[in-house]
């Protein structure tokens, strides 16, 4: 069933990561990404890897689910590894393999491995910190709150967040509608599953047109309903849900900051081997 699609892949739970303030989680994700990209040597990579494992344990999300998040990027991963492997040359250390046009240097192997590690850690870390443990609506609220200083520059932050919220609200409704239309067209003999790719794409047109028409109708209805409920944009609005920062948020912030500091220090002081620059 189409409607079983869960948006943003949120996994309900009550772990520490679930309970963190969503705004703090966005900040932590930024720090995390910075740490991953700052890491330059084996020590630092080991450190980020351990930190990521700790995060996964903290989130209490099953390892299988976490590893599944890597699957969609598998091809990109392999491609990056191959690029790094074959195209690292110049002062690439010892020559490991020289066959026809292929030359593989020691440095290339390390680069490929570290690049892969980085990408995997990045995907796992951000999934665990944000998408798996935060509801899409909390994320939207957090983005609105973090971007609110931009209101001074007359950037419509509230309107943007409202659009996100409405989109999230209507995705399941529109999926339901799509199913209904598909069934209606099937009942009239439409065939979506056979024929060439062009045929199949063409078969989607009779689904998209009614879907668009009804979406516009919905948009008009919703706008009227919102106006009737005295909606006048973000000005003077209060909010039912307010996020408050707890001690745990600050503890995590300090830990993450320390982690980044550690990486910077590690880059400078602990050049274990000359793995790669």
């Amino acid at each position: 069933m189409l409607s079983d699609i869960t948006l943003g892949q949120y996994f309900p739970g009550s772990s520490l990561l679930h309970r963190l303030d969503p705004r703090m989680k966005i900040i932590l994700s930024a720090l995390y990404m910075a740490a991953i990209f700052l890491a330059k040597n084996a020590f630092c990579h080991l450190f980020t890897a351990i930190a990521t494992v700790l995060l996964v344990l903290l989130s209490r999300i099953s390892l299988r689910v976490v590893l599944r998040s890597v699957r969609p990027i598998l091809y990109v991963l392999i491609f990056t590894m191959l690029l790094n492997l074959f195209f690292t040359s110049a002062d690439g250390g010892r020559l490991l393999l020289d066959f026809w046009v292929i030359r593989i240097y020691e440095e290339g192997v390390y680069r490929a491995l570290f690049m892969a590690l980085r990408v995997v850690l990045l995907v796992i870390g951000v999934s665990v910190l944000l998408t798996y443990t935060t509801t899409p609506i909390a994320l939207t609220d957090a983005i609105e709150s973090l971007l609110s200083p931009l209101k001074l520059l007359r950037i419509p932050v509230h309107e943007f967040a409202m659009m996100m919220t409405i989109a999230l609200r209507f995705i399941p409704t529109l999926i339901e509608e799509t199913e209904k239309i598909m069934n209606a067209q099937k009942a009239r003999g439409a065939d979506f599953t056979s024929g060439s790719i062009f045929r199949r794409v063409r078969a989607l047109v009779p689904i998209l047109i009614p879907l668009f028409v009804s979406s516009f109708q919905r948009a008009i209805d919703l706008a009227t309903a919102m106006e009737c409920r005295c909606y006048r944009g973000g000005k003077g609005r209060t909010k039912l849900v307010r996020y408050t920062l707890h001690a745990r948020d600050f503890v995590m912030l300090v830990l993450f900051a320390l982690g980044v500091a550690m990486i910077v220090f590690g880059n400078l002081r602990l050049p274990i081997g000359r793995l790669y620059s």
């Binding site: 899409p136 609200r169 109708q217 919905r218 919703l222 409920r229 006048r232 609005r237």
Partner: peptide, 24 residues
């Protein structure tokens, strides 16, 4: 379907009074 704004029931109920600026 076309008059509910939020993704959580209580937040939708709060939508109107939020617009009126009712304190939390």
């Amino acid at each position: 379907d076309n008059q509910l704004v939020a993704t959580v029931v209580e937040e939708d109920v709060a939508f109107g009074p939020e617009n009126l600026g009712v304190p939390r």
